[in-house]
Amino acid sequence: SLDKAELCDSLLTWLQTFQVPSCNSKYDLTSGVAIAHVLHRIDPSWFNETWLGRIKEESGANWRLKVSNLKKILKSMLEYYHDVLGHQVSDEHLPDVNLIGEMGDITELGKLVQLVLGCAVSCEKKQEQIQQIMTLEESVQHVVMTAIQELLSKEPS
C-alpha cells in the first residue's frame, strides 16, 4: 500500500491548491487549521462558519489545543461520511489524532488528510474538486488516485 510519507507530501501539495492559511508544511497541518479551512471550502453548508469558528487558530505549539481541533475535525468528518456520503470508514483508515497533535505522526496525519480527500471527491461540488486534482503533476495524481482507491474500496484492504 501507499508509503505514508509520500502520501503526506502529495496530499499536502493537493491541500495547497486551496490556498488556505497555515498550510506550508506537514507540521503546519498538525494544528488542524488548514484542514478545517479546506473542509469549509469543500462543503460550506456542513462544515459551516459556526463550525469553523470553533477551530482554534492560535493552537501553534500547544499540543492540547491541536488535539482538540483535530478531534472536532475528525468527528465532523465521520458524521459527514455517514450522514451525507453514506459511507462507513473502516478502522484502518481512522487516524489517531493524539499522535498527530502531540507527536506530529506522519502516518496518522496521512490518514486524516486521506479522509479529507474522500470528502472532496464525493461531495456536491466534486466536479470542481476533481478537476482541480487533474491539474496537479502526474506523480501527485497517481498518489491521490491510489489514496482514493484505498479509502473508498468496499472491502478493507
Binding site: V84, G86, S122, E124, I130, E138, L152, S153
Partner: peptide, 30 residues
Amino acid sequence: DPNMKAGAANEGVLANFFNSLLSKKTGAPG
C-alpha cells in the same frame, strides 16, 4: 520511444479513473 508510450498510458489511467469518479452519483463514493 517506450517512455513516451508509458507516459501516455499513465495519463490514460489517470484520466479514466478521475472521469469515472465524476460520473458516479454524488454522495456515493464507493
